[in-house]
């Protein structure tokens, strides 16, 4: 049994008269400690997959098994628990709380966590120990995103989900961020799923899932993930 198993998941948005099938009978598996990249064009359904995985959205049909529990059947309250304890989320637009310093943003996550990691250590891990007391507005996009990763990781989640983590970043800072994520997976043994429309990033993980129009097009296993520094995009 895989750590995560997406089974025949469908998600239909009802827009008035029109039904939009964001996910159409989608299935795939993710193993513990894997670095998974979900690839697809804009509108393919990547974010939808991630939202469902993250317990932020519900499915229309199918099962989502995470660590032997079917979260598709969870109610709001259980989903909240799930997000709280099992998920770390990195957003495309960082979503730091503007009014909190970098360190405080990390601490924010710890308020609700059972087994949190040390925020200072986390910030060190993402290379921002010098910027701990800066407010988001005083940080660059990449730095902000790294704070966001520190925040997500500090919760000590089972699963780290990243939606286009470099989408709003330039090439260089994007690479820095991706490096941090790779380190999380390969050094801290954390399961990481990142979503991107950039196929150049396909090689950086253990597994690449291509999706198109809400369907899995292909799943590739990559036994020798490339170090992010070697990838050019």
């Amino acid at each position: 049994m895989s750590f995560i198993s997406f089974r025949n998941v469908s998600k239909i948005y009802q827009m008035g008269e029109v039904e939009i099938k964001a996910l159409d009978d989608m299935s795939f598996d993710i193993e513990k400690g894997e670095f998974v990249t979900i690839l697809g064009a804009s509108g393919a359904g990547k974010t939808t997959v991630l939202n469902i995985l993250g317990g932020m959205d519900t499915v229309t049909g199918g099962h989502v098994i995470v660590d032997e529990e079917d979260i598709a059947g969870y109610n709001q309250k259980k989903l909240c628990e799930y997000r709280r304890n099992d998920i770390g989320f990195v957003f495309q637009f960082y979503n730091l709380v503007q009014n909190l310093t970098a360190k405080e943003n990390v601490e924010l996550a710890l308020q609700i966590c059972r087994f949190p990691l040390d925020p200072v250590k986390m910030l060190k891990l993402v290379g921002l120990e010098d910027r701990m007391n800066n407010f988001p507005s005083q940080l660059s996009g990449g730095e902000q995103q790294r704070v966001a990763i520190a925040r997500a990781v500090a919760k000590n989640p089972k699963l780290l989900l990243c939606d286009e983590p470099t989408g709003a970043l330039d090439y260089k800072t994007g690479k820095q961020v991706l490096k941090v994520l790779q380190d999380m997976c390969f050094e801290e043994r954390m399961t990481v799923v990142i979503v991107t429309h950039n196929s150049a990033l396909a090689d950086m993980g253990n597994k690449v899932i291509h999706i198109r129009s809400g369907k899995v097009e292909s799943v590739k296993i990559n036994d020798h993930p490339k170090n992010i520094e070697e990838i050019e995009y």
């Binding site: 709280r84 304890n85 998920i87 989320f89 308020q111 609700i112 919760k155």
Partner: peptide, 15 residues
């Protein structure tokens, strides 16, 4: 956005 972020982080309704 802030509130949504909190929700994603797993803050429950009460929090």
């Amino acid at each position: 956005r802030e509130i949504a972020t909190l929700k994603v982080l797993g803050f429950n309704e009460h929090e």
